[in-house]
Measured scan of single mutants.
Amino acid sequence: EAHAAIDTFTKYLDIDEDFATVLVEEGFSTLEELAYVPMKELLEIEGLDEPTVEALRERAKNALATIAQ
């Protein structure tokens, strides 16, 4: 499951495998979680700032909209 989540994140969020791995290690496994989890939870991840989190959430929401079509 972790590998599938990493693949999904790299494909749809335009991030590298290392960043995707950090997200999975922090407990995220779906685009929905990244799109809708409280921003505070993402900001608790070391190295993430508000602009990065906002961009990540926007990419996740856009990916979900694209997949739904």
Results as ranks from 00 to 15, higher is better:
residue 1 E to D: 13
residue 1 E to M: 09
residue 1 E to N: 15
residue 2 A to K: 15
residue 2 A to D: 11
residue 3 H to P: 08
residue 3 H to T: 12
residue 3 H to Q: 15
residue 4 A to I: 12
residue 4 A to P: 11
residue 4 A to F: 10
residue 4 A to L: 11
residue 5 A to V: 14
residue 5 A to H: 06
residue 5 A to E: 03
residue 5 A to F: 08
residue 5 A to K: 08
residue 6 I to S: 03
residue 7 D to I: 08
residue 8 T to I: 15
residue 8 T to G: 06
residue 8 T to P: 03
residue 8 T to R: 14
residue 9 F to D: 02
residue 10 T to D: 02
residue 10 T to Q: 12
residue 10 T to F: 04
residue 10 T to P: 02
residue 10 T to G: 05
residue 11 K to M: 07
residue 11 K to P: 01
residue 12 Y to M: 08
residue 12 Y to D: 03
residue 13 L to R: 00
residue 13 L to K: 00
residue 14 D to F: 08
residue 15 I to T: 02
residue 16 D to E: 09
residue 16 D to P: 10
residue 16 D to R: 04
residue 16 D to C: 06
residue 16 D to K: 06
residue 17 E to K: 14
residue 17 E to C: 09
residue 17 E to I: 15
residue 18 D to V: 13
residue 18 D to Y: 13
residue 18 D to E: 14
residue 18 D to T: 12
residue 18 D to S: 12
residue 19 F to E: 04
residue 19 F to K: 05
residue 20 A to K: 01
residue 20 A to C: 02
residue 21 T to I: 12
residue 21 T to K: 15
residue 22 V to L: 15
residue 22 V to I: 14
residue 23 L to S: 00
residue 23 L to P: 00
residue 23 L to H: 00
residue 23 L to R: 00
residue 24 V to P: 00
residue 24 V to S: 05
residue 25 E to Q: 14
residue 25 E to C: 09
residue 25 E to H: 11
residue 25 E to V: 10
residue 25 E to F: 08
residue 25 E to T: 13
residue 26 E to N: 15
residue 26 E to F: 15
residue 26 E to Q: 15
residue 26 E to C: 09
residue 26 E to P: 01
residue 27 G to Y: 04
residue 27 G to H: 03
residue 28 F to H: 03
residue 28 F to Y: 14
residue 29 S to V: 11
residue 29 S to W: 13
residue 29 S to H: 14
residue 30 T to I: 03
residue 30 T to G: 04
residue 30 T to V: 04
residue 31 L to F: 04
residue 31 L to R: 00
residue 31 L to I: 09
residue 32 E to F: 07
residue 32 E to P: 03
residue 32 E to I: 08
residue 32 E to L: 10
residue 33 E to D: 13
residue 33 E to N: 05
residue 33 E to L: 07
residue 34 L to K: 00
residue 34 L to H: 00
residue 35 A to V: 15
residue 36 Y to N: 15
residue 36 Y to F: 14
residue 36 Y to D: 10
residue 36 Y to C: 08
residue 36 Y to K: 13
residue 36 Y to V: 11
residue 37 V to Q: 11
residue 37 V to K: 12
residue 37 V to P: 07
residue 37 V to C: 10
residue 37 V to A: 15
residue 37 V to M: 10
residue 37 V to G: 14
residue 38 P to F: 03
residue 38 P to I: 02
residue 39 M to F: 08
residue 39 M to E: 07
residue 39 M to D: 07
residue 40 K to S: 14
residue 41 E to Q: 12
residue 41 E to F: 06
residue 41 E to H: 10
residue 41 E to L: 07
residue 41 E to T: 13
residue 41 E to A: 09
residue 42 L to I: 08
residue 42 L to V: 05
residue 42 L to C: 04
residue 42 L to K: 04
residue 42 L to E: 02
residue 42 L to D: 03
residue 42 L to T: 03
residue 43 L to W: 05
residue 44 E to V: 12
residue 44 E to S: 14
residue 44 E to A: 15
residue 45 I to N: 03
residue 45 I to T: 03
residue 45 I to F: 04
residue 45 I to C: 04
residue 45 I to E: 01
residue 46 E to C: 08
residue 46 E to Q: 12
residue 46 E to A: 13
residue 46 E to W: 10
residue 46 E to Y: 10
residue 47 G to K: 07
residue 47 G to Y: 06
residue 47 G to C: 07
residue 48 L to W: 07
residue 48 L to E: 01
residue 48 L to G: 02
residue 49 D to I: 04
residue 49 D to H: 06
residue 49 D to W: 05
residue 49 D to E: 07
residue 49 D to R: 05
residue 49 D to S: 09
residue 50 E to N: 07
residue 50 E to A: 13
residue 51 P to Q: 15
residue 51 P to N: 11
residue 51 P to W: 11
residue 52 T to W: 09
residue 52 T to R: 10
residue 52 T to F: 14
residue 52 T to N: 06
residue 52 T to K: 10
residue 52 T to Q: 10
residue 53 V to L: 12
residue 53 V to R: 05
residue 54 E to A: 13
residue 54 E to Y: 02
residue 54 E to S: 13
residue 55 A to P: 02
residue 55 A to G: 10
residue 55 A to T: 10
residue 55 A to C: 09
residue 55 A to Y: 05
residue 55 A to F: 06
residue 56 L to S: 01
residue 57 R to H: 06
residue 57 R to W: 02
residue 57 R to L: 11
residue 58 E to D: 10
residue 58 E to C: 06
residue 58 E to N: 09
residue 58 E to A: 06
residue 59 R to F: 03
residue 59 R to T: 06
residue 59 R to W: 03
residue 59 R to N: 08
residue 60 A to W: 01
residue 61 K to S: 07
residue 61 K to Y: 04
residue 61 K to R: 13
residue 61 K to V: 08
residue 61 K to A: 09
residue 62 N to H: 13
residue 62 N to C: 09
residue 63 A to D: 01
residue 63 A to T: 05
residue 63 A to N: 02
residue 63 A to R: 03
residue 63 A to F: 03
residue 64 L to Y: 01
residue 64 L to I: 13
residue 64 L to F: 03
residue 66 T to C: 09
residue 66 T to H: 11
residue 66 T to Y: 06
residue 67 I to G: 07
residue 67 I to Y: 01
residue 67 I to M: 09
residue 68 A to I: 10
residue 69 Q to Y: 00
residue 69 Q to A: 15
residue 69 Q to L: 04
residue 69 Q to D: 12
residue 69 Q to T: 11
